[in-house]
């Protein structure tokens, strides 16, 4: 079976992982217009090449980031999302406290 290297758990069968979509910058849901929110929700880059994606190691519920070639299926690098995201994101809804 294809092997993926989990940054926390080491090399594992690809069946232990769940794909979580491309890594995108989220627009501010309070201020962005509908088309930009639609773009964030529905659109991926769709270039054939190396893509940066969210993956989860299912048994440990650990989310990380993988750089993978979506044409050859080669996984080039996996790393903890702490490399990219350092701050906690809180969602504020109109009329709600958090």
């Amino acid at each position: 079976m294809k092997i993926m290297h989990c940054p926390l758990n080491g090399p594992r069968n690809i069946s232990e992982f769940t794909y979580g979509g491309q890594v995108h910058t989220m627009p501010d849901p309070k201020t962005c217009d509908d088309p930009s929110w639609a773009r964030y929700v529905f659109y991926e880059d769709n270039d054939i090449g190396i893509v940066r994606e969210w993956w989860q190691h299912t048994p440990s519920s650990y989310w990380f980031i993988a750089e993978r070639h979506n044409g050859s299926d080669d996984i080039l690098r996996t790393y903890d999302p702490g490399e990219l995201f350092t701050d906690r994101v809180d969602f504020q809804t109109p009329g709600g406290e958090s």
Binding site: A38, R39, Y43, E44, N46
Partner: peptide
């Protein structure tokens, strides 16, 4: 479809 449409400058909400 999505890579071809990109050549025309059109993004499509597709995942292959």
């Amino acid at each position: 479809s999505a890579p071809l449409a990109k050549k025309a400058g059109i993004d499509l909400p597709l995942v292959a």
